[in-house]
């Protein structure tokens, strides 16, 4: 049963990932990204990382893809003219991607990761354990992350302000 669900979810994820790469229109690409993230969230649930699946749907599907769609609506008025297929370039891209996947899988096979069953309960299954980790061992990273979000927010304000002030002066 779990095997069937895994096969279905991985097929969905890979197909939608290919959809992101091959879609003519960027809006279709964003929709494929959304489905792909839903598949990944399903895989997270299979790995007992329930909290991460929830956060993935909330942050990625809720915020990031919506932001992408807004920006596509704002900028991409040319529609489908973007995707010009250049054989030499596409061939080089496919060769590079094939090399990459072969190399990674060779490492995975030679490393003998093993087909053993999962150990323990799975950390993500318990919210208490998670919070304990975040507020003891990883307290400093949490603080740094908050500071990073603040800096990112200030940076975005600065970027959008400077350009809009420079425009009328031209």
């Amino acid at each position: 049963m779990e095997q069937i669900a895994f096969i279905f979810l991985s097929a969905l994820t890979l197909a939608c990932a290919l959809g992101v790469v091959l879609a003519k229109n960027a809006v279709n690409g964003a929709m494929c990204l959304l489905l792909c993230l839903a598949g990944i969230a399903g895989l997270f649930v299979q790995l007992h990382a329930y909290l991460l699946a929830f956060i993935l749907v909330l942050v990625y599907a809720g915020a990031v893809v919506a932001l992408f769609l807004f920006i596509i609506m704002l900028l991409d008025m040319q529609g489908g003219q973007a995707w010009r297929f250049r054989p030499a370039q596409a061939l080089a891209g496919f060769a590079a991607a094939a090399l990459l996947v072969t190399g990674l899988d060779l490492i995975a096979i030679r490393g003998r990761l093993g087909g053993g069953p999962p150990v323990g309960q799975g950390a993500g299954s318990s919210l208490k354990l998670y919070a304990y980790q975040l507020f003891t061992a990883y307290l400093l990273p949490v603080q740094v992350m908050g500071f990073l979000l603040l800096v990112a927010m200030l940076g975005i304000i600065l970027i959008s302000r400077r350009i809009s002030e420079a425009d009328p002066s031209k």
Partner: peptide
């Protein structure tokens, strides 16, 4: 790894 390679291709 396959997913990563697809993103890389894109």
């Amino acid at each position: 790894s396959a997913l990563f390679a697809i993103g890389f291709l894109g």
